[in-house]
Design a protein around this nucleic acid. Structure first.
Lengths: 138, 138
DNA sequence: ACTACGACCTCTAGCGGCTAGAGGTTCAAG
DNA sequence: CTTGAACCTCTAGCCGCTAGAGGTCGTAGT
């Protein structure tokens, strides 16, 4: 297997400039090159980039991925640390979900302020007055 | 009411450089100045900045806020458009929540891959192989 | 009236995580 | 051997701020 950057891009779903960017920031190693300086990738890089892409999709920051990749190369005692990183990330995700759920409720209340039933649109005021639907009193 | 930028910052919870940034990108109008070029704000700006802050907290992008502010000054026929913006935003939020929920399940499966029960930590492989917990077969 | 000092000013550059474009070179199919 | 798609490097831009340098202003206390 001897993939050009475009092949690697197609196989991983990571855009070409992003692959080069990952190399630049040290997330992917510098690959072999042809005589004309074109990058050629093997299965290791394919695997690693798939890992990176999936971790990014899961919302891991580049720094966290760097940690995970570092720990992965030291498989003995690192397991607990990998768990810790994942747990920390899980806590963040749960927090995000909670915040977004509150937001969703608020937005639903906003669109429920149906303009057919009231004379004036209140969404602007609702936003200005910190998001409470105020059709009637209050 | 004649607020210096620091007062405005304290009252809205928006940081001073951010206020100046909002002015720079045209989200806030250029305020009155003292003879020594210091900004002085009145109640209109306070109200507008509170609106902006709340909308940002709700996850509206600056462009959307610009739209909302523009529509707010044309209150008659704009109501439906404001609803549309809000509904679009709500759909995006729901989408994010769905994605994050899937992510949470995946992360929970990952941390459930308890390293006391297995000989090798699988988190790395789980991430690499697109997130399926593969303790046993597969 | 003067001084001290905190709050303000402008300007530039940086952050993360890419993305886009210019302008030039290489590879591989026909 | 030619074409043209794919590659190369380099620089700059995106969003939404944030930080710092280096200098000026306003006001409280004396």
């Amino acid at each position: 297997m001897n993939l050009a950057i475009g092949d690697l891009s197609r196989r991983t779903g990571v855009k070409i400039p992003t692959i080069r960017y990952y190399e630049q920031i040290g997330l992917l190693p510098s690959p072999a090159r042809t005589e004309g300086q074109q990058r050629r990738y093997g299965p290791d890089e394919l695997h690693r980039l798939n890992f990176i892409r999936h971790a990014r999709e899961l919302g891991f920051e580049v720094d966290a991925i760097r940690q995970l990749l570092g720990l992965a190369s030291d498989p003995g005692r690192s397991c607990g640390e990998v768990h810790d990183i994942t747990k920390t990330h899980l806590a963040e995700v749960n927090h995000k979900i909670a915040r977004l759920s509150a937001l969703r409720d608020e937005l639903e209340a906003m669109v429920a302020c149906d303009n057919r039933r009231i004379s004036e649109c209140r969404i602007i005021e609702v936003l200005a007055d910190h998001g409470e639907c105020q059709h009637r009193q209050h």
